[in-house]
């Protein structure tokens, strides 16, 4: 197991380096955006003196490298500076919203991952039957429809017509957990529809890919029933590719929710990012991007480790 621990540390190290590179890219990309921050803050009517004073105050006159290092050293301890627009601390604005996004992602994942994998196993078992084809067509349809479209369809049928769920997923502090689940059900369902197809198809492909293996034939020739051949003999060896796709989709649930949040007016981090971009609130944009990058890196790391842990050769060395 010592090997695995050192491997995880190594991957973590690589992850940190990647994050550092990304932080440089994010910072300087934002620098390259046209427009003057001071001008944006003070508006067209500002005088030259006011602008100069603000630039001095915000440290905009210092060289970019110095400002990057200051920003980075703050970011490391969770201090992303203050929002240009509201003057609030970026971290306090973002934290709550990020937690909301995480909640929605977790809600969708808890439904989507088991559903997708189970469905994948079932279509692998019933491969090339009508059920397999129908499941493929439906999931493909859902993955190829734009999320906002799916969202509006769900609103139309489940909210406007059937009146089962609210169309707007606004949150308030005094909600019970059940109320919360009820109110955020439609955005979560939209996300489930978007990510299921990918995971299901990978599960199906990974299992079917193994069905030609000699040990699967051996299991069949031992009289093992077909469902057990899939669940007991194929699935345990198919985890590595499945985990990778699951991780990618989990990352998407966090970083790709902008549209869904807008459709359902859900106060998540995606909304903050959109607002911040339109208002040229650069500290918020940078913080959001960095959080998204970190999420991607962490989930990919988790996928790597997961793939290693499901490999018996690595779990049980000679």
């Amino acid at each position: 197991m010592g090997d695995i621990a050192s491997l995880i540390f190594k991957r973590l190290g690589y992850g940190l380096i990647t994050l550092l590179v990304i932080s440089i890219i994010i910072f300087f990309m934002v620098e390259l955006l046209p427009g003057d921050i001071a001008q944006a803050v003070l508006g067209q009517g500002a005088t030259e003196e006011n602008l100069a004073a603000l630039r001095e105050e915000m440290g905009l006159n210092k060289p970019a490298v110095v400002r990057y290092l200051e920003w980075l050293s703050g970011a490391v301890v969770g201090n992303f500076g203050e929002s240009i627009v509201t003057g609030e601390r970026v971290s306090s604005v973002i934290t709550e919203r990020f937690i909301n996004t995480l909640f929605l992602a977790a809600y969708a994942a808890v439904i989507a991952v088991p559903f997708a994998i189970t469905l994948g196993v079932i279509v692998a078992l019933l491969r090339n039957t009508v059920f397999d084809r129908v499941a493929n067509v439906l999931t493909l349809t859902s993955i190829s429809s734009p999320e906002f479209f799916l969202g509006y369809i769900l609103i139309l049928y489940l909210s406007v017509k059937a009146q089962m769920f609210p169309a707007i997923a606004s949150l308030s502090a005094d909600m019970t957990f059940l109320e919360l689940l009820h109110r955020t059900f439609l955005p979560a369902l939209t996300l489930v529809l978007v990510v299921t197809a990918h995971m299901m198809r990978m599960t199906r492909a990974a299992i079917i890919n193994l069905l030609a293996s000699p040990y699967i034939e051996m299991a069949r020739l031992k009289g093992t029933p077909p469902w057990k051949v899939i669940v007991k003999h194929a699935l345990p060896n198919a985890w590595a590719p499945i985990i990778n796709v699951v991780a990618l989709n989990l990352a998407y649930l966090i970083t790709g929710v902008v549209l869904v949040e807008v459709v359902f007016v859900y106060p998540g981090i995606g909304q903050s990012l959109v607002d911040a971009v339109s208002k040229r609130d650069f500290p918020v944009v940078q913080a959001c991007c960095l959080i998204f990058a970190a999420t991607f890196i962490l989930l990919n790391l988790a996928a790597d480790v997961g793939a290693i842990l499901t490999n018996p050769r690595l779990r049980h060395p000679k």
Binding site: Y215, M218, K222
Partner: peptide, 21 residues
Amino acid sequence: LRGARIAYVAQSAAASFNPSH
């Protein structure tokens, strides 16, 4: 019948044993 009354021994045992069990 398979496994119970007729059994099979494959060419490559290394490939025919499931690596996960």
